[in-house]
Structure formats: structure tokens, C-alpha cells
């Protein structure tokens, strides 16, 4: 490894509009390889829009307009020739669980199969590993052939996480992943995320300020479409926040 590796994701002057509405304005930030990058902020701060822009999901949203530069591994995501290869390397977990109408096994095996893995032993191994990491294995190991969409909300959320891991992403975008998951399971998943940091880079959008504190190496505070500040998490939480609005938010005075 080089002493100062270039950032995995580099964002410059990113603005996002939905028609006339501005969701994000002039965001500059870098996400380093193998870090957990936390994003906190009240509703409507542009957090989800930011994630959407990262792997070019704006194409699914009519009227969403992305301006500015985003580079992923040194490549401008706007001009990447094989968009599917880009998305394959960026895993996403949405806030509401999306269990695809497939069996639990097939949900997790879908992405490996899409990239051409057909051997059963290999698929079995991936499925078990990913389900274990998402803290779901013990609950579903006896009914892997059951429909994924019949699981409970929290289980589906963990299934979604397992599925995102199964594509073996370089960058994992977590959008309020713990919204439907009970606290104990959340802690188990958080442990896994800490381990995963050694392998991949994680962007963690969360409404739980303490979750960002527990997990993130650096945390950024978004407010009203602006990236107010970015700082090492410990510094931010131990009184090192520069901006008054960040302090207010962290202390729960608004939001």
C-alpha cells in the first residue's frame, strides 16, 4: 500500500436538484478507502440524495438532476462506460427493506449468480457467509427455500444487508439500515460492520447520532442541503464541532 492512498470516492461541487427544489448544494468531500464515513443530519438534509448520486441511481428518479463531479476509484461516475460494473461494486441498503420475491437463498445468491457463479458449493458458501454477517443465519438456516418477502420487517432488512454483501462490493452505502431492526440485532450488525471495515469502505447514513459515534471513523453533518462540516468522529463528539448548528444537532436541540 502507498502511504497516502488517494480517496476511494471524491466529490466536488455536488449539487442535486429535483425540478426547482434543491436537495443538495455544493458538497465537497472525500471518502477514504477502508473507512466508515458517517453522515448525520435531520430529515430533508440531502443525505439520501447524496447516496443516490454516488452509484447513479438518479436515473431512476424522474426530474432528479445531478451537477458536479463524483469520482469512484479515480473514475468519473458520469462517464463510466459499464454502469452495471460500477453498480456491482457499490452495494446499497435502503431504509425500507426490499425482500425480492425470491426464496431467502435466491435473494442472497442472486448477485453472485448474475456475475456468473454457478457452482452450488460456492453459492452455498457465499449465502451462508453473507447471512451470518447480517446476523440472520441462525433464524433462517432451516428455511432457506422459504420466500424472502414473507420474513418479518427486521429480518427482511437483514436479508437486504446480506444481499448487498453478497455482491462483494468495494463500497457499501447504508441508508438508515437499522430503522426496522431491533436494538440487539442492530448491535450485532454493527459489530460485523466494524469487521468489514478491513475489507471495504462504508458510507453510513443514520438518524441515530450515537450509531455514527459508535461506528464512523469520520462523521459529516448535513443540514438543509449543505454539508456543514466533516470531522473525525471522536473530535466531533467530544466538543470539537466548529459549527454551532452541529453542536445543536448533536445535543438534540433541534431536528
Amino acid at each position: 500500500m502507498v502511504t497516502e492512498p488517494p480517496p476511494l470516492v471524491s466529490v466536488r461541487g455536488l449539487s442535486i436538484h429535483y425540478g426547482d427544489k434543491v436537495a443538495l448544494q455544493g458538497v465537497d468531500l472525500d471518502i477514504k478507502t477502508n473507512e466508515i464515513f458517517g453522515i448525520i443530519g435531520p430529515a430533508n438534509a440531502g443525505k439520501t440524495s447524496f447516496l443516490r448520486a454516488l452509484n447513479r441511481m438518479d436515473e431512476f428518479v424522474p426530474g432528479m438532476q445531478v451537477l458536479g463531479d463524483i469520482t469512484f476509484a479515480g473514475r468519473d461516475v458520469r462517464t463510466v462506460r459499464n454502469l452495471y460494473a460500477l453498480r456491482k461494486r457499490i452495494g446499497v441498503v435502503f431504509p425500507l427493506p426490499v425482500g425480492l420475491p425470491l426464496s431467502i437463498y435466491d435473494n442472497v445468491a442472486l448477485s453472485p449468480r448474475l456475475s456468473g457463479i454457478t457452482k452450488h458449493a460456492q453459492l452455498d458458501e457465499i449465502v451462508e457467509r453473507c447471512l451470518r454477517r447480517a446476523a440472520l443465519w441462525d433464524e433462517v438456516k432451516d428455511r432457506l427455500k422459504g420466500l424472502g418477502s414473507l420474513l418479518s420487517g427486521g429480518q427482511q432488512q437483514r436479508l437486504t444487508i446480506a444481499r448487498a454483501l453478497s455482491q462483494d462490493p468495494e463500497l457499501l452505502l447504508l441508508d438508515e439500515f437499522s430503522i426496522a431492526v431491533d436494538p440487539v440485532t442492530t448491535m450485532r450488525i454493527e459489530e460485523v460492520l466494524k469487521e468489514l471495515r478491513q475489507e471495504l469502505t462504508i458510507v453510513l447514513v443514520t438518524n441515530l447520532v450515537q450509531q455514527a459515534r459508535r461506528l464512523a471513523d469520520r462523521t459529516s453533518f448535513f443540514l438543509g442541503g449543505l454539508c456543514v462540516e466533516i470531522a473525525p468522529t471522536e473530535a466531533l463528539f467530544s466538543g470539537g464541532a466548529r459549527e454551532q448548528s452541529t453542536v445543536d444537532y448533536l445535543e438534540g436541540r433541534f431536528g
Binding site: 473507512e35 466494524k194 469487521e195 464512523a216 471513523d217 469520520r218 473525525p232 468522529t233
Partner: peptide, 9 residues
């Protein structure tokens, strides 16, 4: 600031 979050348990 790698060490701030501690090593994995």
C-alpha cells in the same frame, strides 16, 4: 484517525 474507533473486538 484509524485508531479512534478501536480495533474490531
Amino acid at each position: 484517525n484509524k485508531d479512534s474507533a478501536g480495533p474490531p473486538p
